[in-house]
């Protein structure tokens, strides 16, 4: 699908590389060199074949193999995504649990409405505000994601905190909302009442009975949203000039560098589909009630 999409893009590839005033003969020559004058199906099968062998072709713009570029960028992106998830999962769960325990009180409204508002803030908007406040005015965090060469992992994480915060803001709303809904349902359930009636303290009830049941749907949301991260990365990596897969796709889109664009989007799509699958899987593993094909 991605492949077809990029093939219908108007404008000859060679033209966009050589510029509008290029000599028609050299345009034709370059088109032939790049192989874009062959029939579509031939190109498509060729592309799939090579992709499955780990060869993603040559970049039109850089005249260099795409695979190492995509893989390196993916590595950078996964680091950023990992930092964002490490920050947001505990924060979101704590936020949701606190909100649920104070349901309909001011603290709950603040967390819920704040989370909801943060979710619809475009990443570049919260990014700009955070750069100004945390990076430039308070000098708490470095405003560039480019850590010094040879920096140890901890320093790298330190440099990635600011770029990951806008993603954290978007995800916080989703995760805390699911945690809150799960908590409220669990608090109102019969087993919680039984636990209270058998004389456990409220803290014990929450810790042993409520939390375990409440966090099931939250796990699924976390896994699903790992897929969203891939989309958010396009903006964040552009804003922070971070060499991840998002900025690779973005640059390829502006330069009409189709081999990079196709491979990048294909890799992101695969990750997205895999996380959705994992989300379904994790839900049935964690929740014995909907585990299929066992028991009877």
């Amino acid at each position: 699908m991605v492949f077809l999409g990029s093939q219908v893009l108007p404008g000859s590839v060679a033209l966009s590389i050589l510029g509008p005033e290029a000599d028609p003969r050299s345009v034709e020559l370059l088109n032939h060199q790049l192989g874009v004058d062959r029939p579509l199906l031939v190109q498509w099968f060729g592309w799939i074949w090579h992709f499955l062998h780990g060869d993603m072709g040559l970049s039109y713009v850089h005249q260099a193999p795409v695979s190492p570029m995509v893989m390196q960028a993916l590595g950078y992106s996964l680091k950023l995504a990992a930092v964002a998830l490490l920050l947001v999962v505990p924060l979101g769960i704590v936020g949701g649990v606190v909100a649920a325990l104070k349901v309909n009180r001011p603290l709950d409204r603040i967390i819920s409405l704040g989370g909801l508002s943060a979710t619809v803030l475009p990443e570049f908007v919260s990014g700009i505000i955070l750069i100004l406040v945390l990076g430039i005015w308070l000098h708490w965090l470095p405003i560039s994601a480019a850590w010094p060469n040879g920096a140890d992992p901890l320093t790298q994480i330190y440099y990635l905190v600011l770029p990951s915060l806008p993603l954290v803001l978007v995800l916080f709303g989703y995760i805390s909302r699911m945690a809150r809904a799960g908590m409220i349902e669990a608090v109102e359930s019969d087993y919680t009442r039984t636990a209270v009636l058998k004389g456990l303290t409220w803290g014990q009830v929450v810790w042993r009975h409520v939390l375990r049941n409440a966090l099931l749907p939250t796990v699924t949301v976390v896994v699903t949203q790992a897929g969203y991260l891939m989309g958010g990365l396009v903006v964040i990596e552009t804003l922070f000039r971070y060499p991840g897969i998002g900025s690779l796709i973005f640059t390829a889109a502006t330069q009409k560098d189709f081999p990079i664009l196709e491979s990048g989007v294909f890799v992101v799509g695969t990750i997205f589909t895999m996380t959705t699958f994992l989300a379904d899987l994790s839900y049935s593993v964690l929740n014995p009630r909907i585990r299929m094909g066992t028991g009877q």
């Binding site: 396009v234 889109a253 992101v268």
Partner: peptide, 11 residues
Amino acid sequence: AMPTIIVALLA
């Protein structure tokens, strides 16, 4: 199955 922003970008 694709992040919206990437679909929009391609389109």
